[in-house]
């Protein structure tokens, strides 16, 4: 939208070192997701359509597994905000992923209560079981292991979340059983949950 040509000074010599999210395949909301987004938008005043941005990002992430530049553009268009605002939100919240993740995202809380109750041991066990360091995803995209901040169940520390299910009072042995169960029966094995997070 500029009127003037690029000013000569240092043009092109200095580039940002920020790692950009990948462009990804062309992204388009499915008709079902778009309808759902419109329904969510009706919960906010029309001039506050931006309020639905997190819901829109969840829908995009649910559809593709992670959020790409292409998805951010689609969200910006759907929400009618700028792409920079979308990126701002994506990078602020840790539950938005900008790279492909495993089918089961195993999150270990490392905030105070869980840390005191031995969350580090749980992470070590999971790490050994899955053969992943925290932050990594395995080659066939089955598991991702993440260390996260407070999951909001401090009274039942340590807490391990798998996707939308919370597993509380996890000791290293229980964590091993959790992985075994996931490997054997997939998401169907997730029964130890005390608190089910209603997924959008």
């Amino acid at each position: 939208m500029s009127f003037h040509p690029l000013m000569e000074y240092g043009a092109g010599h200095h580039q940002s070192a920020r790692v950009l999210p990948e462009e990804g395949p062309a992204f388009q909301f499915t008709a079902a997701n778009l309808a759902k987004l419109e329904e969510i938008c009706t919960r906010y005043p029309a001039e506050r359509r931006k309020s639905a941005i997190i819901a829109a990002l969840y829908l995009a992430q649910g559809q593709q597994g992670y959020i790409t530049l292409s998805a951010m553009r689609a969200v910006a268009a759907a929400i009618r905000c700028s792409t920079a605002e979308v990126e701002d939100i994506v990078y602020f919240y840790t539950m938005f992923y900008t790279r492909p993740m495993g089918k089961h995202i195993v999150m270990v809380c490392r905030t105070l209560s869980c840390a005191l109750a031995g969350a580090e041991r749980v992470t070590e066990t999971l790490s050994k079981e899955l053969g992943l360091r925290p932050g990594e995803t395995d080659a066939n995209r089955e598991f991702s292991l993440l260390e996260v901040e407070c999951l909001g169940a401090c009274d039942r520390a340590p807490v391990v979340g798998v996707n939308d299910d919370w597993h509380e009072c996890q000791q290293p042995e229980a964590a091993k059983a959790l992985i075994d169960g996931l490997r054997a029966a997939g998401a169907g094995s997730l029964t130890g949950c005390h608190l089910k997070v209603a997924g959008e």
């Binding site: 939208m1 500029s2 580039q15 920020r18 951010m72 792409t83 920079a84 605002e85 990078y91 602020f92």
Partner: peptide, 27 residues
């Protein structure tokens, strides 16, 4: 009227950024 600048990441890693690092293009 065109929010081209945002802040990516959080805490000590927060940085001023534009989408795709294109910079600000505005009059």
């Amino acid at each position: 009227g065109d929010a081209q600048i945002g802040i990516t990441n959080r805490g000590v890693h927060s940085e001023i950024s534009t989408f795709e690092e294109k910079g600000v293009v505005s009059l």
